[in-house]
Design a protein around this nucleic acid. Structure first.
Lengths: 67, 67
DNA sequence: ACAATTTGTCAACTATATTTTACATTTTTT
DNA sequence: AAAAAATGTAAAATATAGTTGACAAATTGT
């Protein structure tokens, strides 16, 4: 899985740290980090939470053309 | 979690059974059924697979306004 | 009305997402 | 240049996503 640059950018737009985003979303900092590093495969519920906090849609942050 | 009617509709548009969709997507029939019943919380990777098979985007099938 | 297919559901199991603690490295601030 | 904050990573534990097999209920076809 590729690194998720879109989240990093959206986070920057909101001037949030990984820790702040993790807290806002209700997961651990390591989980947020792993998602940005593309190291795993979050649940759709977590994806929706991230989208709400960052004011983005699922397709903005989590679509991938190839698997 | 609410039932996922959007998947049911998209599946009907492709004239696919739950079993056929499950197979195309590479999960068990019970998993597909549970997702349609809103009984769990699939991973984003599985959501993307479902979207590809049904020619839909993540926001079409998996967005929810309230959590 | 009957048969066949599809769907809903349960229980026990396996795989993996997520947590916690902890430390090293990089980046930012003073 | 030093201190502080932010990020990358690892190992062990826990929660839950996904599997398998089996059966009942509902739908569809003849």
């Amino acid at each position: 899985m590729p690194r998720n640059i879109a989240i990093k950018v959206a986070r920057a737009e909101k001037d949030m740290t990984q820790t702040a985003l993790a807290k806002a979303v209700g997961v651990s900092r390591q989980t947020m980090n792993a998602i940005e590093q593309g190291e795993y495969n979050p649940t759709i519920k977590l994806c929706r939470s991230i989208c709400r906090v960052l004011d983005k849609k699922l397709d903005d942050l989590f679509w991938e053309d190839e698997e």
